[in-house]
């Protein structure tokens, strides 16, 4: 029949179809590249926790299976520098070695390694670290330290950690993850969004944010904030709600960033206090009413963000705003 080759590849090949197949084969699903070794995104979510744990285990199982039947597909990440003992998969890391999708990179005590991908940026991996690349755009830092300098367009590169994903918004930053899966993200230049599920934190240059295995991204704060302010924030995030008073009292105008995040995270009964302090420190636009802010009206929250007058935040206009 005339269309047999198109139907089931029986019969003589149609030359035009064969050429199209050849041209398009580059985008065919590749099993090894399809695996994502991502940590569960909402490990604390009560009904979701079990499923997420299953998902992680499942993906590891799939990865293992795939790696048995297919060689690891190289990503664009290549070793550009090695100091000390480091391994890519089971081999000693050497310069120019490519990191395969799903392959694990480990650095020993005192070791350091730099990965580079021409279209993405560079990643400096600190000692005692374990990292894998799911694709050119996504790596997973299981523990250790990673310093990223990314030149790809915003939102193209993501670092997964056991408790949150750091979405690059055009910048330079450091992520550390301890053996418990808790982490800290410090931004040196540009912006990073820390997210898991519908919980997000936006961290500008000069700020940092903790992430915890059980609760995901915390509230960002500037690194130059006072010690007492930081202690109050840590206490509040640790569950001591009485610390909120000190936290608000110690806030500076620059800490509007922290208060803006608190607005959407605190209990409804505390939201008025946070908004009140925010309004003392930041010039709230006239069209934003207290009621709208307390109701977390998306437009009001959006306008309050604008009132922070943060620099280089053009990416904000295209952000999904999951908290809405």
């Amino acid at each position: 029949m005339k269309d047999d080759y198109l139907w089931d590849r029986s019969g003589p090949p149609d030359p035009e179809i064969a050429r199209l197949e050849e041209a398009l084969a580059q985008w065919r699903y590749q099993p090894a590249a399809g695996f994502r070794g991502a940590a569960p995104r909402r490990p604390w979510s009560a009904p979701g926790a079990r499923w997420m744990a299953l998902a992680a285990a499942l993906l590891v199982a799939i990865s293992t299976w795939l790696m048995k039947v297919a060689p690891s597909v190289p990503t664009a990440w290549q070793v550009a520098r090695v100091e000390g003992a480091a391994q890519v998969g089971r081999q000693a890391a050497t310069v120019s070695m490519a990191l395969g999708a799903g392959q694990v990179l480990r650095t020993g005590s005192g070791a350091a390694l730099t990965l580079q991908a021409d279209a993405m940026g560079t990643l400096d991996i600190g000692p005692d670290s374990e990292l894998s690349a799911a694709s050119n755009r996504r790596v997973e830092l299981r523990h250790g330290a990673l310093h990223a300098f990314i030149w790809a367009r915003p939102r193209q590169f993501v670092v997964n950690t056991p408790s949150a994903s750091a979405v690059d918004l055009g910048c330079e930053y450091t992520v550390t993850v301890n053996s418990s899966g808790d982490g800290l993200l410090r931004v040196a230049m540009g912006w990073v969004a820390f997210q898991t599920g519908d919980q997000e934190a936006f961290i500008p240059a000069g700020a940092e944010c903790v992430t915890r295995r059980r609760s995901g991204p915390g509230i960002p704060y500037y690194q130059d904030a006072g010690q007492a302010f930081r202690q109050s924030l840590a206490a509040y995030e640790g569950g001591r709600e009485s610390a909120l008073g000190d936290l608000l009292e110690l806030s500076r105008p620059r800490d509007g960033l922290t208060l803006w995040h608190l607005l959407t995270r605190v209990r409804a009964s505390d939201r008025g206090r946070v908004f009140g302090r925010f309004a003392q420190l930041v010039a709230v636009p006239a069209e934003v009413t207290r009621d709208a802010a307390l109701a977390k009206d998306p437009r009001a929250i959006d306008r309050l963000w604008d009132a922070l007058n943060l620099e280089n935040a053009d990416w904000w206009r295209g952000w999904e705003r999951r908290w809405q």
Binding site: G34, R36, W51
Partner: peptide, 17 residues
């Protein structure tokens, strides 16, 4: 194409849930 790879995991995780 690059996004399709990234989104596959989302699809299967949603399906599993």
């Amino acid at each position: 194409p690059g996004d399709a790879e990234d989104l596959m995991q989302d699809v299967f995780l949603a399906a599993m849930k």
